[in-house]
Design a protein around this nucleic acid. Sequence first.
DNA 1: AAAATACTGTTGCATTTGCAACAAAAAGGA
DNA 2: TCCTTTTTGTTGCAAATGCAACAGTATTTT
Lengths: 208, 208
Amino acid sequence: MLNNTTNEDYLSLKNYLSKCVNTTSKTFYNKELILNLNTRIKQIAFITYGKATLIKIDENGNKIILRELKEEDIFSNLFYIDSEDEIYCVSSSNITEVIFINYYAILKDCSMNCPFHNQLVLSLFDLIVKDNKELNEKIELLSKRTVRAKILFFLTKRSKDNIFRVTTSYKAIADYLSIDRSNFMRELNKLEKEEIIKKEGRKITLLK
Amino acid sequence: MLNNTTNEDYLSLKNYLSKCVNTTSKTFYNKELILNLNTRIKQIAFITYGKATLIKIDENGNKIILRELKEEDIFSNLFYIDSEDEIYCVSSSNITEVIFINYYAILKDCSMNCPFHNQLVLSLFDLIVKDNKELNEKIELLSKRTVRAKILFFLTKRSKDNIFRVTTSYKAIADYLSIDRSNFMRELNKLEKEEIIKKEGRKITLLK
DNA sequence: AAAATACTGTTGCATTTGCAACAAAAAGGA
DNA sequence: TCCTTTTTGTTGCAAATGCAACAGTATTTT
């Protein structure tokens, strides 16, 4: 066991999992492929430790970072629509511990009214609701018509006390916002000139 | 009972609902407000008949159509992040029948290991997974960098036998794609000139 | 049936945007 | 440590895009 988070949902999920559903757990190291989401095997993966990146490789072979997944996040091929020319996969960042849950194991009653099973499903339910919420936020972000609006929305949502720190890279953020990197830099410079933000290396301060 | 769908999940959900969870059901008429998603009351709504529109009203008062919801779709304020300056709401189109399920009623065990309750949760689980899938598809759509790519992705996904029919309006589609309407029309004309699509009124044919 | 509202189709134009290219800096690996 | 790869910062430019405006059509309301 690599961490000792105090989150109740998380603890309970691990608890219920071990009690009634067959799962496999595996630890991954830097940039290992955790799951190719185009697989036919229906399963839900739960990150118990570490971070992961959900990547899309488009028809031109470009890697696009779709999401940064962290501890207590779930991901599953169930959430993605099969497409032949586009590949989705999840890759680990450094040490990442993942539990894989077979989807059919969740669906079927494991024994006569096993209470753990019920709790497990509720726990997963909560996690999907959370995931859903994040997706809706991303849709709202991507719906903004200009690069500026996207940047400001992103910074506002992600900053704490008006301060945002670039923990990944500017490139990764540009990819996440689905905008051109050079244009991203240009717009950040403009925003700084207009005194809407202040940029000091990897620290961005929102001034308004 | 207004419809007689044969979908198993749908039937089972209605079944399980009536057996163990307190719900309210209501019929709405044209453009009635079904739910203001900024409410604090945690509930999941399930459309049993009709259609509805998920609208966002932004800081400038512009209405933006975020989603078209149909029979067997669910929606909930749980899926949206509270924001003060932006309002989300769901409005009915013509006759729409909706079941409201209290979120806490789902979470708690209704009685000692009620099997209906378990099935109900699984049924909802399936619906959220479906919703999640749709959201991911929309993210993929909005991630496309050009108006042309967005249009072609949309047409490809929504067409049947390479034919897409505009059932709502060109304006609504432009809003959904989050692009300027006039530019949408311009790009459609270009695509027609380049013989990639054929446009006959409200019928669009994909030629390649 | 008339009036009001909403949608369609089009165009000009300023601005924004993505793209290509390249040097410099930083990070990662051997 | 040196070497390789990735990221950062910048700029020019052509193309794409949003916006405003307006007339015509369709749809809805009174």
